[in-house]
Design a protein around this nucleic acid. Sequence first.
DNA 1: GTCTATACCTTGATAGAC
DNA 2: GTCTATCAAGGTATAGAC
Lengths: 208, 208
Amino acid sequence: MLSTVSAVTDQRSAQPEPGPTGTALRLMLAAAEAFADKGFHATTTRDIASRAGLSPAGVYVHFASKELLLYQLSKDGHETALSVLQVAAEQADGPREALAEMVRRFTTWHAEHFTVARIVQYEFQHLTPEHRAEIVTLRKRIEGAVHSVIEDGVAAGEFEVADVATTTLAVLSLAIDVARWFAPGKRRTPEAIGDAYADLALRLVAAH
Amino acid sequence: MLSTVSAVTDQRSAQPEPGPTGTALRLMLAAAEAFADKGFHATTTRDIASRAGLSPAGVYVHFASKELLLYQLSKDGHETALSVLQVAAEQADGPREALAEMVRRFTTWHAEHFTVARIVQYEFQHLTPEHRAEIVTLRKRIEGAVHSVIEDGVAAGEFEVADVATTTLAVLSLAIDVARWFAPGKRRTPEAIGDAYADLALRLVAAH
DNA sequence: GTCTATACCTTGATAGAC
DNA sequence: GTCTATCAAGGTATAGAC
């Protein structure tokens, strides 16, 4: 059910068939808002239930625990974030275009879906050790995608960086931190922020 | 008691006279570790008490509530962070040196004091509305300090940026996000990260 | 200033009727 | 699948002895 929640948040796509049924989806959206707003531990199952229009007990028909709700959201969000990077990398021509497009779309995603993005970046530490381990694997692939394109750019003589690992972290920080400060109603749109940050990323790698 | 907690964490300074007494200080250090590790709401007063070697009731002799403990830590941390920026700005000669020195020290602080920095950047939303409002004022001054130096650099013809506000956010994101990913025992020292990020900030503003 | 004991409340989760 | 009712556990904070 990759990006089911994101897709619904988008209000772009007609209802696809698989994944959570209507009520489960409503619960995930309710939980996403609550977790992003107050954090996992400050959110009560009663809060989630009432946001979704259910009684406190109604949650447990669809999710066995509050942690499982977080896990589904976190996994879904990480998979979507990784997919955003991969699609951008595939479609672009050369490291320079690839990095710009990856940062543009990754940043835009963090702003547009800042509730899920906040859960992805700041709440995964509250998962069980087993679930956290699974998510950490996805996080390494996200970091690896950015690391690769910078490495390619250096090898091709298009980028000049002092240290690939440090620059990778810096580029990721730019986009990730958007989930912390972004709020709807900001002057700049998610797309404008993505455009600006793509340029800034090219400066970080001293692209020719 | 500006930076009392940071100073003790440093193990650099001999005991100064004002501020919290020994036990209150131990409680603040215990709370800082716990809040940074698990977040405010996941931390129990029992946890804080036991880390400080006290009974659960012992906390309330020194702090009237758990929130007040967070408030003291947050205020102390924000004042120190602001002071780091101000000292760097005063000592430097010209916008280029000022920006580099501010980012160097601000970043190093976020790594070296990553427990307090994490509370500063990610836990202040759990303060009471009154306390949060006070902290927001400090946060605006922090953002203003970076905004000013970039504006000065542009005015002096030393920097070239598309938008001062966006670049300010990006520079701050670089340093702030260090508090999220830094962990003791990392290959790079706080100082090395600060040095690298000072260079990256100069790239972001296209310093001549 | 610190302790033991505990009040009082909210929490995550379950039982069982419909 | 949803509800009402409820449980056991653990939360913040206080009372009162020492």
